[in-house]
Nucleic acid binder design. Sequence first.
DNA 1: ATTACTAGGTTCCGAGTAA
DNA 2: TTTACTCGGAACCTAGTAA
Lengths: 213, 213
Amino acid sequence: MNEKDHYFLLYLARNIGFHGTMETSTGKIAKGLDISQQTVSRKLLEFAEEGLIIRSVTSTGMKLALAEKSREKLRTLYGELQTLFGKQLTLSGILKDGLGEGRFYMSQEQYKKQFQSFLGFVPYQGTLNISVDKDAAVAFVATKKQLYITGFSTKERTFGGLKCYSVLIAKKIPGAVIVPDRTAHTLETIELIAAVNLREMLELENGKKITVQ
Amino acid sequence: MNEKDHYFLLYLARNIGFHGTMETSTGKIAKGLDISQQTVSRKLLEFAEEGLIIRSVTSTGMKLALAEKSREKLRTLYGELQTLFGKQLTLSGILKDGLGEGRFYMSQEQYKKQFQSFLGFVPYQGTLNISVDKDAAVAFVATKKQLYITGFSTKERTFGGLKCYSVLIAKKIPGAVIVPDRTAHTLETIELIAAVNLREMLELENGKKITVQ
DNA sequence: ATTACTAGGTTCCGAGTAA
DNA sequence: TTTACTCGGAACCTAGTAA
């Protein structure tokens, strides 16, 4: 098997399911992958030959299931990417005084709703400002999936959007780093939120060191 | 860019590092990927052309760094695999009487230490035995990362190794499924452990239904 | 409808080799 | 030593079409 064919396999896995079977046809797959029906036919024959899939031609098309061998291949690929991304980077910094603005932002219903759906929790009303090394912070967020919280307007004013990255604070509390689109500080300072009052939970005071991963 | 070239990219990412740079040569990469030096040379030129990598030829070879575009591509691929593997499968079963043996096992220091380092918690001394559908259980653990707790011997007796899979019990309690190497039951019964007394925390009694994910 | 064979065209690879 | 060009051949893809 040409290892490049993993993509074909990935497509099949997504549609068939990891353990399921599926009634489909070479034409449908061809459309999905944007290649010819002939190529799909040929590839599927090759894959079956190599024991990657289980295949049976029916009157209306064919029935497909992944074989263990292809599950193994996908797991390997996944593992490789995990080692690449999974190097649980940590970011450390010093707690400093916030501007009290975070509290106001976090009290807005429209932010709260989005945090709930993106992060799975409603943030405690207040943010933690941490001084960090800018380059380290940039590298850190680069490895994280970026979630985007959209802005909105009320009668009184406009609230901007913000990027947010799910993290684990002090090795135990699930939370997030938030980066407002329009912010006074660059990544020299990051803002942390969590479902709980972090200052209390972690018995923090200004100047203390905090690590997120 | 041919999407199949992701493999080439993955190799580069692993060797260069996600954000780093690296002094290397087309010959070395060719050896690593088991393709010709000429192909590597051609591919790298193509990649640079497409803004996937940053490339500069030196007297001894070349200096390479990934560009943001290729990081993005790898992230996408990773994301696709995550949705494939990450479909938080759940497994449900009925609580049944244990043999009281679990308690004895979990009291062994050498097991405790390993659980602490692999799972991040020391299990409560006692296991929960759950009757489940065997096939569902096999499919369930297949999607989980397998952690292996090694066995050991004391003066009195030998303790076998066990496989263990990190799970979330009843949607809220972090725990693990353990599968002893030598076990009376096959996967018709799974054993659960957690940092806390699950019977109390979940107000369980025999015959109740439990779900893990 | 389907699957899948044949034929012809395109893409891709690597040995040889220049710089 | 390098990188990277040329070019012949292998691998691959798809239109046409049989079953």
